[in-house]
């Protein structure tokens, strides 16, 4: 008998396998190792954002600002590197600090003034997006030796597959978040706040520090994803990542994290991102389907998983 909390996770995993098999039968080259590594590289920034979102949702909150923060950090990188000729190794830490401060500010508003996370992060989304547009309305290209160097580096995998270096960085982030969530005290606090923040406070959980830390972490990761995105596109653009917040939320929920908080797994989010990626890949292979079908499919999938959570929750309350 499988524990009830593993049911959504198992469903996601089965869907992933089924999609892969169907695609493999339908299209040549779908069930290849390269497609798997591409899944990882093409969705690297989404995975990073979704990992932060996992923490936020585990704590019972929500962060609608992530897509805009991705855009802001991308634009900042591009403008500082291309127009101001700053060295990237100075720009990246700066952008990460700005992102973290942004999240700290949102977390503080949420904690100290008891404002609802959705409205604070919605305002944050508009603020970051507005700031990005103010800095540059046009897409700014990046030409820097470091970018070419990073783009060319990577590890050759068996089966002619190629794992670019920034995918490796993403795997490192994944490992870090896994440890943070499942093996650190902070991770325990995140679950505690998501379970019942009043009880958590009574049990001595540092709510202020944790809440602010969670949103700071989410924005930090979004800024990190923005940097990654510049490596992917060699540019920064204020309109990147529109709707990415929903993709991230969808990945987290499809990965088995309870929307009400308190239960979920980091590796589930990885599965969620992979499943969404495979839907995109399938639609690209299909060719005749428009890309907005992916949007609709993911929306429906998200709906199904939310409904599944409701049903499982209800039956667990009765049982």
């Amino acid at each position: 008998m499988i524990a009830r909390r593993f049911v959504p996770l198992l469903a996601t995993f089965s869907l992933l396998v089924v999609m892969f098999i169907i695609g493999g039968f339908q299209f040549e080259g779908f069930a290849s190792f390269q497609v798997v590594t591409n899944l990882l590289t093409d969705n690297a920034f989404l995975l990073v954002v979704a990992l932060g979102m996992t923490l936020v949702i585990l704590s019972g909150g929500i962060d609608l600002s992530v897509g805009a923060v991705v855009a802001l950090s991308g634009v900042l990188c591009a403008v500082l590197i291309s127009e101001y000729q700053w060295p990237p190794l100075l720009v990246f830490p700066l952008v990460l600090v700005i992102g973290t401060l942004f999240g700290t500010l949102m977390g503080s508003l949420i904690y100290f003034y008891k404002l609802q996370p959705f409205i604070v992060t919605l305002a944050g989304m508009f603020f970051a997006r507005g700031l990005a547009t103010t800095i540059s309305e046009e897409s700014v290209g990046i030409e820097h030796p470091l970018y070419y160097a990073v783009a060319d580096s990577g590890i050759a995998l068996p089966g002619n597959a190629w794992l670019p270096s920034y995918a490796i960085i993403v795997l490192a982030v994944l490992a870090g978040l896994f440890l943070l969530t499942h093996y650190s005290r902070f991770g325990g606090y995140v679950y505690a706040i998501g379970g019942n923040s009043q009880s958590a406070a009574l049990m001595g959980v540092p709510i202020a520090r944790s809440t602010i830390g969670i949103y700071a972490m989410s924005s930090f990761l979004a800024a990190f994803a923005g940097i990654l995105y510049t490596f992917y596109t060699f540019s920064g653009y204020a309109l990147t990542g529109i709707g990415m917040e929903l993709d991230a939320i969808a990945a987290v929920v499809i990965g088995g994290t309870l929307l009400t908080g308190g239960s979920g797994y980091i590796l589930g989010t990885l599965l969620g991102v992979m499943l969404m990626g495979i839907i995109h890949t399938y639609i690209i292979f299909e060719g005749s389907l428009n890309s907005w079908w992916a949007r609709i499919a993911i929306g429906l999938l998200l709906f199904v998983f939310i409904a599944l959570q409701k049903v499982l929750n209800r039956s667990s309350q009765r049982g």
């Binding site: 005290r185 325990g188 379970g195 019942n196 009880s199 049990m203």
Partner: peptide
């Protein structure tokens, strides 16, 4: 009970002092 139903019994006992 002001504990956390979503955490394990052991985690409830040692939360913050793991």
């Amino acid at each position: 009970v002001n504990l956390l139903p979503n955490l394990s019994v052991a985690h409830n006992l040692f939360l913050g002092r793991e």
